[in-house]
């Protein structure tokens, strides 16, 4: 992940035929290697923005550029649910992105096994998704995103369906991945504490059509451990965000 990607959005809007405008003109820039969270109420358009950043959707007007020196697919996406191929084993699921990119099978296998080891599933390679718990499935999904060593990692409320223990464990792992490899990460969530714990910068979107309400730096150390969640400085950062966003504009 040597070459992280940057993003520049200028006056980006998106209008759907049935739902109407979901984004007021949004302008923001993300520097290579940043870990940014987008916070916002349900249905505010944050996922739409994320899909456009992933190149899966396009702005109705304005300009959204993602710059990266790499020419291969350098973006990875983690969905709200794990979305694994039910007929493939855990290992085959994680090999999938590499296979789609035309990478040779043995190499793909080695990389996939490695990515699974990284999320603590090194001994579940031969199992099928139906045999895994929700937390394990999400781990496989994260491993599938990491296997291509992405320069830009996009996550759409990935841990919201998990119980608290699993959610915290996966947050810890994601943060550690960022600390060691420093890809650019754009993380969409509706949980303020998740955003504060994970990222270095928090952006708050208003209710639909989304406007930029807040764009702030998180004043916490770069290296974060599970125990940070119970410290005074962590609650101070939480309060600071709550105090600067009115409930009417963004019910968080």
């Amino acid at each position: 992940m040597s070459s992280a990607a940057g993003l520049k959005a200028h006056q980006v809007t998106r209008t759907f035929t049935e739902a109407g405008a979901v984004l007021d003109p949004i302008s923001l820039a993300i520097q290579p290697g940043e870990f940014v969270s987008i916070l916002g109420p349900s249905g505010c358009g944050k996922s739409t923005f994320l899909r456009m950043a992933a190149g899966l959707d396009h702005p109705t007007s304005g300009k959204l550029d993602v710059e990266c020196p790499r020419t291969d697919p350098f973006r990875s996406f983690v969905f709200q649910e794990s979305h694994l191929l039910p007929w493939s084993t855990v290992l085959r699921n994680v090999m999938l992105p590499l296979e789609l990119m035309g990478i040779e099978k043995e190499e793909a296998k080695a990389k996939a096994a490695n990515a699974l080891k990284r999320v603590g599933l090194g001994d579940a390679l031969k199992r099928f998704p139906a045999q895994l718990s929700g937390g394990m499935k999400m781990r496989v999904s994260v491993a599938r995103a990491l296997v291509t060593e992405p320069s830009f990692l996009l996550l759409d409320e990935p841990f919201s369906a998990l119980d608290e223990l699993n959610r915290h464990a996966l947050q810890d792992e994601l943060r550690e991945i960022w600390e060691t490899s420093r890809p650019t990460i754009l993380f969409v969530t509706h949980s303020v504490s998740e955003a504060v714990f994970l990222s270095n910068r928090v952006i708050v979107f208003s209710k639909r059509p989304a406007r930029l309400l807040l764009d702030t730096h998180v004043n916490l150390p770069d290296h974060r451990e599970a125990s940070l969640r119970t410290t005074a400085e962590f609650s101070r950062e939480l309060k600071s965000i709550y105090s600067r966003v009115s409930y009417e504009e963004a019910p968080l």
Binding site: A54, F79, L85, L96, P97, L100
Partner: peptide, 24 residues
């Protein structure tokens, strides 16, 4: 549809869409 997105993200050729995703 999420898996269709995933295949698009990695620029899967059309044939792969059919064989690795749609048919199974």
């Amino acid at each position: 549809p999420a898996l269709v997105d995933l295949f698009r993200l990695y620029r899967a050729p059309r044939f792969q869409f059919l064989v690795k995703l749609k048919i199974p």
